[in-house]
Design a protein around this nucleic acid. Structure first.
Lengths: 167, 167
DNA sequence: AACTGATTAGTCAGTAATGACTACTTTAAC
DNA sequence: GTTAAAGTAGTCATTACTGACTAATCAGTT
């Protein structure tokens, strides 16, 4: 998937590392977690397979930098991956479930305290999302998507906190 | 997190690889994706750090096998990881969002067809979950958790399918 | 002019994860 | 009795990913 993201960032013209990262931060950091070193790793791989090329440029006295550009096959790959991404579904695993599966190993009172801490962090994240200014286009759906899932998570947690009996 | 899972599987006594895998399949395969080779990888790591030990046994004419057992520090680690897991929250990234972010790159008609394919697969997964027989204890919450998120995903998709205009 | 912190660019060693593979056993079908 | 399918146990080469690091420039401050 991260390939799709990087190819997509290069769709509208060549970019160097910093531009890629800025663009990612402002528009796509909601969708995926992309570390800088991972980005270079993937760009190298894409280049080895001929999907992108780079030339080296120097601006002023700055260190050299690589300007990446999509090749034709890179553009084809982008559309292929995009179609796949839109048509496929693969289930998400939630780490939270592992803890719940073993919750009986703790006294219920303590477990509930811990879950309340989780809930508070969760609500913090949710509020951050709610403060994101409205965006144009398909962007809106991404934000709504995440908010829906966060709200689902909160209700689930609160339902559990109610139903777990203190014993 | 997979450490927590494996330590948890060993809580109620020593087990060999096959028993671990069986137990995982029947009870925890809903919570996490654990490949066999990953399990061995993690067991080796846990053993190197002294959290589990193994002895080799042979039954009949079968090939040798390792029976893993929790050490005291392993048991302590389990409870530490469990408390962490219950109290922490870290956001989930959804691959679906990456495709949505670039959906404008396709004719809307095609995009909607692709999303309908996604929805159908999604509904398939949802139905599988709904057929899971009711379970005892905290288990129920895991199932409900996943069903809630799957339903959220379906509504989101259908809302999008309605709102995306054909142009 | 010396210091500080943010910006810019990239490398590299080490960790994490897994697909593909070997090899042997048991059950049971034909 | 031989072929097939499923069960059983584990290794290994390769891929995927990341934290920590170097190194330089630039803007602002003291």
């Amino acid at each position: 998937m991260k390939e799709l993201l990087l190819l997509g960032l290069l769709l509208d013209g060549k970019k160097h590392g910093y531009q890629l990262n800025e663009y990612y931060k402002h528009t796509l950091s909601f969708c995926a977690d992309l570390k800088k070193s991972t980005a270079y790793y993937i760009l190298n791989k894409l280049e080895k397979d001929g999907y992108v090329v780079h030339e080296t440029e120097r601006q002023g006295n700055r260190p050299e930098r690589r300007v990446y550009e999509l090749t034709e096959t890179g553009r084809v790959l982008f559309y292929e991956l995009l179609r796949q991404n839109l048509a496929d579904y693969s289930r998400t695993y939630y780490d939270d479930d592992i803890g719940i599966a073993f919750i009986d190993q703790l006294p219920m009172g303590e477990a509930k305290q811990l879950l309340k801490a989780k809930r508070d962090k969760l609500i913090g994240t949710l509020n951050q999302f709610k403060e994101v200014p409205a965006h144009e286009g398909s962007w809106r759906f991404v934000i709504e998507h995440n908010i829906s899932h966060l709200e689902t998570e909160v209700s689930w947690l609160e339902r559990m906190l109610e139903e777990l009996c203190d014993d």
